[in-house]
Amino acid sequence: MNEFFTQAILIATVASGIRLAVPLLLASLGETFGQRSGVLNLGVDGIMLLGAFGGYYTVLKTDSVWLGLLTGIGIGIILGLVSAVISVTLKAEQGISGIGIYLFGLGMSDLLFQKLVGTPRPVSSFPKLDIPGLSDIPILGEMLFQHSMIVYVAFGLVPVSMYIINRTTFGMNIRAVGENPEAADSLGVSVVRTRYLTVTIGGTLAGIAGAALAIDLGIFQQNLTNAQGFIAIALVYFGAWRPAGVMGGALLYGFVNSLVLQFKTLGIIPRSWSDIAAMAPAIITILALVLVARRFRQPAALTKPFTRGA
């Protein structure tokens, strides 16, 4: 255990936890918008996968990580709109239609990868961005302020989301539509427009999450996300539909993962316990979900399509 408490290992473990949290944080922040307005999008993982492939392929062809990120955004917007058409306009059963989007993303990203790329080929990753001043702080600077740009963007989006949801008219509309769409509608708030916007924001952030994952790893592979999109949805419940809570959940999941990896590497967790330890992040997150989230109520209109006068 002593070997764990060395400066280098502690720094690496915290930095690793933060990196692991980023795709989850981006995707679950997006999903928070949708769910606060009453739309559950189970297709997050599919959108992430297509965003990941699109971002990866763009970097492979252009060698520009920024164009790659832009492609992820574009794919996210398109699939967010498709999700909105299905769940808002067509009023599909949200628990099922999202799975359709997921299967589409899973199959399509693999198909495109096999046809256009074939064998995994590495691409450039995001450059590291040391925050001037802050990155020089001993230990803390290395843990928190020597990451790639996308890490700061992800965490920067937390206060932005809080502000939008809690302090703007748009945010008030989102909450109204998610709690009582009939009342919001009677006051002249367009339920359809609000939900289109939130679901598209959700898709966009899922697309960014996927592209960030692929570009940060510098590689694509069949089912690259390994169901991170579903974990992101669980984190929205964990975070009680609040951006700060969602961030807490993503960090908890990331840190438990990085701690387990580090303990395994150092032999603190014996190899015979390896497979059980691999489940720790999921189990701890579920326990926390049970303990924390039940104190909060989900948006009253979540998963309920809105029909005027129904």
Binding site: E3, A8, I9, I11, A12, T13, A15, S16, R19, L20, P23, L213, L217, I219, Q221, Q222, N223, L224, N226, Q228, N257, S258, L261, Q262, K264, T265, L266, G267, R271, S274, D275, A277, A278, M279
Partner: peptide, 25 residues
Amino acid sequence: VNINYTGSFGDVALASEAAQAHAAA
């Protein structure tokens, strides 16, 4: 020889972080 079984055949991100843990060690 530090051996790290990540618990997954498909999780690329986890394999990447396992390598980071090895590097730190």
